[in-house]
Design a protein around this nucleic acid. Sequence first.
DNA 1: TAACAACCTACTAAAATAGTAGGGATATTG
DNA 2: CAATATCCCTACTATTTTAGTAGGTTGTTA
Lengths: 138, 138
Amino acid sequence: MLSKKTQYAFRALVYLAENYGKGPVLISNISTRKKIPLKFLENILNELKKADLLESKKGKGGGYSLKFSPRQINLATVIRVVNGPIALLPCVSLNFYEKCDDCDEDICGLRKMMTITRDATLKILEKKTLEDILLVGV
Amino acid sequence: MLSKKTQYAFRALVYLAENYGKGPVLISNISTRKKIPLKFLENILNELKKADLLESKKGKGGGYSLKFSPRQINLATVIRVVNGPIALLPCVSLNFYEKCDDCDEDICGLRKMMTITRDATLKILEKKTLEDILLVGV
DNA sequence: TAACAACCTACTAAAATAGTAGGGATATTG
DNA sequence: CAATATCCCTACTATTTTAGTAGGTTGTTA
């Protein structure tokens, strides 16, 4: 399951997607409109910025905005930044790989299944973008 | 990600699958062979039994065995019993559904994407069984 | 230089995960 | 029926993760 933090991140990103091209949006604005705890949201947006998904501007007229168009930001990227691995096992993760200590044949059978699962999941999450989320509402 | 508990569960189940039809297997045997903490494993197997995946026998000659053939036990079932929901959002889960408190249009766009993702994941996890895990080793 | 707004470090509370402890219930065998 | 084997049950503890808070710092603009 996605953490609450990740759900907040998506809500904020979708809001920023709606405002794409209209200049920076204030954290406090997002917080109020999307009912996300202000300081928590600060952390989240900052993480997203460090991951190069957002850009920010300080001082009056400042705020956050998407660094790329909603179409260019896919869901897998967001999840990886805020939530972590998408695969169900560390030894199957592409971006957060960790060796499993005693990977015997059984576990490796499981590994195979989890690899197939991961590929099916990624095929969708990497194709769908913030834009796709927006279009549902229309 | 699957919890450690779930990974233990799979290891134990695969071992029991290997011994399917050969009579009950001791917890202590599984614990030693699969390097799973004994008392923790006790809890896990008991849960799997309550979920009707295993059957048990007490006293001498007792132990645990699969209640159905390895082919009949699919991975989605196991994950749901030990790990919980498979969907990425509570409001998208078939077996652990929970309403999201302020489900506005944005979130519902996300919901749509997560539903598609869930379906793709389930299509695999419900088709693959303990037998499929075993066959990889061969 | 005042105000604004993001940035940074560090802390805390609550919940989930990963176990452990120890006895109780039931079945088998001699 | 007694001894032993084996699962069963309740409850506890330690660690890690999640969720959020507090308060000051740095950079921007007017």
